[in-house]
Computed example of a mutant assay.
Amino acid sequence: MTRIDKRFAALRDKGTKAFVSFVMAGDPDYETSLAVMRGLPAAGVDVIEMGMPFTDPMADGPAIQKAGQRALDAGHTMDRTFDMVRAFREGDDETPIVLMGYYNPIYSRGVERFLAEATAAGIDGLIIVDLPPEEDDELCLPAQAAGIDFIRLATPTTDDRRLPRVLQNTSGFVYYVSITGITGSATANAASVGPEVARIKAGTSLPICVGFGIRTPEAARDIASVADGAVVGSAIVEKIAAGEPVDAILAFVRGLADATHAG
């Protein structure tokens, strides 16, 4: 079992849902980003989703685009991302870490090298938004062979004919994108998300976590009531962008996590 599998099994045993938080690696700088990351588990985060800064983040809204640019402007690189993960793992060997981003930086680095470095650093999963199932040989299957889960996105436009292909080689959990559009562009609605989660569950035994459009504890609780977990990114990234102290950011995260677990 991967760390992701173990975490979801533990949550099921406790009868609670997963809270997944997104932060951009290196935003606004290496030291602050690492301080936030180190504080996330104590703030109730079950899975850390870490963005890999990239110059053309086509699925992301303004908040996360700007976070990636701040990190790049501060000199953040893939090497520094792995440095962060290794530093985090010195004090925490249990919390799952998922890298989210785009294929170009991985392709440029070389898949074999990237996977070797990710495994050695302590990465547990990948969400690569611009690699469809038809390209599973590129990264999905090699990642799983290396022991890294490949987490696929399902969306409101993933119809019943497409869904089995999306689920075929997915592992860890399924990430359901609750809205059509980019991150931070609309609000998730439990009434519309619930039937979609049920439809996906009919095709897989994997947990279903819902992201995009969750900004408040109330929204996180509502989404967790119909899914296996909630993912929050833009709302946290905006706190970082505003220059709020690390303690204040983590307190905000704690409110989201508590509400999700109550769901």
Rank of each mutant, 00 (worst) to 15 (best):
T2R: 02
A10T: 12
L11H: 04
G15Y: 03
V20A: 00
V20Y: 09
V23Y: 03
M24F: 01
M24Y: 00
G26V: 09
G26Y: 01
P28Y: 11
D29V: 02
E31T: 08
A35W: 07
M37V: 14
R38F: 06
R38L: 13
R38G: 13
L40I: 08
P41E: 10
A43H: 03
G44F: 05
G44H: 06
V45E: 09
E49R: 11
G51R: 09
G51S: 13
T55Y: 14
D56L: 03
M58V: 15
M58A: 12
A59G: 06
Q65W: 00
Q69T: 13
Q69G: 07
R70M: 13
L72Q: 12
L72P: 14
A74S: 12
G75R: 10
G75H: 04
M78D: 04
R80L: 15
R80Y: 08
F82H: 11
D83P: 12
G91L: 04
D92A: 10
D93N: 13
V98G: 05
L99I: 15
M100V: 14
Y103H: 10
Y103I: 14
N104E: 13
N104R: 03
Y107I: 15
Y107Q: 14
R109Y: 13
E112N: 08
L115H: 04
T119W: 03
A120F: 01
G125M: 03
L126V: 12
I127N: 11
I127Q: 06
I128K: 00
V129R: 05
E135C: 03
E135R: 02
D136I: 09
D137G: 07
A146P: 14
A146L: 11
G147A: 11
I151F: 01
P156H: 08
T157L: 10
V166H: 07
Q168M: 14
S171L: 10
V174M: 08
Y176S: 06
V177Y: 02
V177C: 02
I179H: 02
G181R: 12
T183Q: 10
T183H: 07
G184S: 09
A186K: 13
A186M: 05
A190N: 01
A198R: 10
A198G: 07
R199H: 07
I200R: 03
K201A: 11
A202Y: 04
G203P: 04
G203F: 04
P207Q: 01
I208N: 06
I208Q: 05
V210R: 05
V210S: 01
R215P: 10
P217W: 02
P217E: 07
A220M: 03
D222F: 00
S225E: 15
S225G: 15
V226Q: 02
A227M: 11
A227P: 13
A230Q: 10
V231M: 09
V232F: 02
I240M: 08
I240H: 08
A241F: 02
G243D: 09
D247C: 02
D247W: 00
I249F: 00
A251S: 13
V253N: 06
V253T: 08
R254H: 12
L256F: 01
A257P: 08
A257G: 01
A259P: 05
